[in-house]
């Protein structure tokens, strides 16, 4: 059975938080959760000490179409110049 809800997880640079959230809301998400993040990847080590050096993780739950639309928009806007990781996974929402 096709699950009805998907979890979109975005990991990107802290400086993009406001802009990404504007876009996520504009595309019709009902909510989002942001957490501070740190890690290592193609854009080097992100230590999370200050804004230039820290990441965020944004999570959105919604339909597959919504998650795909957000991914397409963020890839188009930010992939070339910023660290960006996008994941979609099926989830069961229990409440």
């Amino acid at each position: 059975m096709e699950p009805d809800k998907y979890l979109l997880t975005i990991v990107s640079e802290s400086i993009l938080e406001d802009r990404m959230i504007d876009e996520i809301r504009e595309l019709g998400a009902n909510g989002y959760t942001v957490t501070d993040a740190r890690g290592w990847g193609k854009h080097g080590k992100r230590r999370g000490k200050w804004q230039q050096d820290s990441n965020i993780q944004i999570q959105v739950v919604g339909s597959r179409e919504l998650c795909e639309a957000i991914c397409a928009r963020l890839k188009d806007q930010y992939q070339a110049d910023f660290g960006l990781l996008l994941l979609i996974s099926p989830v069961e929402v229990k409440n």
Binding site: E13, I15, Q51, Q52, A80, D81, F82
Partner: peptide
């Protein structure tokens, strides 16, 4: 911060 936004490349 300013350059990351204005000149992201």
């Amino acid at each position: 911060a300013a350059m990351r936004i204005a000149v992201p490349e």
